[in-house]
Design a protein around this nucleic acid. Structure first.
Length: 574
DNA sequence: CTTCGGATACAACACTCAGG
DNA sequence: CCTGAGTGTTGTATCCGAAG
């Protein structure tokens, strides 16, 4: 049957059948599904084994793949014989233009999605294999349930691919199926999928069907028309509500803060480069603010009885207002880390003061507040579309470096495009120029050299935007941006923000000194007349510190004195 | 330094219980 | 009587802090 779905295979057979004007049916009774997972249907008919006795048969899906080394060898043979050649995509596009089939699609894309009703429970469990549970079907949660349902949906996908034949993509997450096709064949494709599901007895949750350019799938809003994915509005408003609660007062409930952090963490899956911003929130979450409580010195020796090993008050002490569940931080300015530290507290006849951490309330730092305020703006703005296209590694050659001495710092670097275009920058400032950031830095520039290197990378992105926009590299850089070291974390945040909004990322790697010579030279040079010919003055990008910092796109007016009737919008936070 | 546990968020669904 | 909130199960992700 699966074979019969593939027009290329059945084509000749069907033609012969028609030509012979045969009276016998085209499909014979013996024609069954030919699929790698040959145990699947037998297991489904009998009831699936749960795996408690290691009795789950292999699906054979992953074992029949071609040997990758052999494949490479075969390919190499063809290349060596001159039958094949490797051409970069941009070169191929230049050579063949619109006749190139790779990466082309003719019309707008759209998607469809369906949901399988009580998905796991569609799989029957073999009798007698469950000793303690008496489910007759796979319940949600059991490991084998997920296994069997994945296997069933994988079968569906495998069968649908040859069946649909016309260009499409299919994705399945648990029981949610997502398909993408060109808009012109959307309805017919979806209808075929639904018919197929009915034939194979996949119960469909009819009320949850979706079709069109926008699909809500596994918590994200996909827009295939625009080629992007965004956070759905219900999550945005949920975030907004949470933020309003938190930003209303100085002190916030730990649970509430944690909830918002979790939600932001979820959203950040789309913008992983913004993750460095989370550090101040986590700092606040884990630093409970202390309150001082006084205590009669006579009660102090028995205080250990009221505490558990984590120094949390488990019972109320009469004569004090220490709330249950709060944690002891210090007594008489002696830090208490464990119970035996209590012996270090000097005993006098005076009333003593205990610093106690409120267990459930937190104070938001100014940095956290600013970050949350940013999210408020983010949630109020129209949703930010994240491109679905796989980022291309670009052949851009770029390097940046920084220099610092006494109260001066400088950055330099260049971006060399594949087209040969070159942009470079070389700019120096003094520490006082950074005053607008309100970072409260000392005048010793050398102390912040790592920060200036990050600034140089920001400039690099700025440079690249000026000349050419593209996605580059992986998200690996996001991990390197995790730092709590001040003020490096602030610079890293700036870089992250820049990167997230431009959909452009740097695969930052440390370049050995000799390759970095140019960048190093550009960061140190003072007299531009000594520049090598490689860096002509007319390709220099003049940078403005505030513009770099605030990610402001420089708006230029032509003619320069043109009277604007409105103010150029400026994001006051970032 | 690594591993684990305990938190949060999200995905799914069914059940219980309180309140209008 | 219906609705919404909360509970439980699995998986993914994140973080911190404790233990080895």
């Amino acid at each position: 049957m699966a074979e019969a779905f593939i027009p290329s295979l059945t084509g000749p057979r069907l033609r012969d059948h028609v030509a012979a004007a045969s009276e016998s049916p085209f499909f014979s009774d013996k024609e069954v599904v030919k699929d790698a997972d040959k145990h699947l249907f037998l297991a489904l008919l009998e009831g699936v084994p749960t795996g408690y006795d290691g009795d789950i048969p292999k699906s054979n899906v992953f074992t029949q793949r071609a040997d990758p080394t052999l494949l490479c060898e075969l390919l190499q043979k063809e290349v060596d014989a001159g039958w094949l050649e490797t051409i970069p995509l941009h070169e191929a596009q230049a050579r063949w233009g619109s006749r190139l089939a790779v990466g082309m699609h003719n019309g707008a894309l759209a998607g469809f999605s369906l949901d399988i009703e009580a998905a796991h429970k569609t799989v029957r469990v073999r009798d007698g294999t469950l000793r303690y549970l008496f489910y007759r079907v796979c319940p949600f949660g059991a490991v084998f349930s997920a296994h069997w349902f994945q296997r069933v949906s994988a079968f569906l996908i495998r069968m649908l691919h040859p069946f649909l034949y016309v260009r499409h993509s299919l994705f399945v997450y648990s029981d949610d199926l997502l398909g993408i096709t060109e808009q012109s064949v959307l309805e017919i494709t979806f209808a075929l999928v639904l018919a197929f599901c009915v034939c194979f007895g996949y119960p469909i949750s009819w009320k949850k069907l979706q079709m069109g350019p926008r699909i809500l799938w596994i918590g994200w809003s996909f827009d295939f028309g625009a080629g992007g994915v965004e956070v759905p509005s219900d999550k945005t408003s949920k975030l907004l509500a949470g933020l309003r609660d938190i930003l209303r007062q100085d002190r916030v409930d730990k649970r509430e803060l944690h909830r918002v952090i979790g939600l932001i963490q979820w959203i950040l899956q789309l913008f992983p480069l913004l993750k460095p911003w989370m550090n101040t929130l986590y700092c606040d979450l884990h630093s409970p603010f202390g309150t001082n409580y006084s205590m009669d010195p006579g009660d102090f020796p028995s205080i250990a009885d009221f505490l558990d090993d984590t120094l949390t008050f488990t019972s109320l002490i009469s004569g004090t207002a220490i709330p249950l569940g709060s944690k002891l931080l210090s007594v008489r300015h002696v830090d208490i880390k464990r119970k035996r530290d209590l012996a270090q507290v000097p005993l006098t006849s005076k009333r003593l003061w205990l610093r106690v951490a409120a267990s459930s309330r937190r104070r938001l730092s100014p940095a956290s507040k600013q970050f949350l305020l940013y999210w408020k703006h983010w949630a109020e703005d129209p949703p930010l579309l994240r491109p679905l296209q796989i980022p291309l590694a670009s052949p851009v050659e770029a390097a940046a470096d920084a220099m610092a001495s006494s109260n001066k710092f400088a950055i330099g670097g260049y971006v060399q495009m594949p087209s040969g275009n070159l942009l470079w920058f070389s700019q120096s400032w003094v520490m006082a120029d950074l005053q607008f950031t309100k970072l409260d830095l000392s005048d010793d520039a050398q102390a912040y050299i790592a920060s200036f290197e990050t600034l140089a990378q920001i400039a690099l992105l700025h440079c690249a935007i000026k000349s050419w926009c593209d996605n580059a590299g992986a998200e690996s850089v996001s991990n390197k941006l995790y730092t709590r070291k001040y003020p490096l974390c602030i610079f890293a945040q700036r870089l992250a923000l820049f990167s997230a909004y431009s959909s452009m990322s740097l695969d930052v790697s440390h370049i050995p000194g000799e390759y970095n010579k140019d960048a190093d030279m550009l960061s140190r040079i003072e007299d531009f007349s000594e520049l090598p010919a490689r860096f002509p003055l007319n390709t220099r990008l003049v940078l403005d510190l505030e513009q770099l910092w605030f990610r402001r796109s420089a708006v230029s007016l032509t003619p320069p004195d043109f009277p604007l009737r409105w103010k150029i919008p400026v994001n006051e936070f970032f």
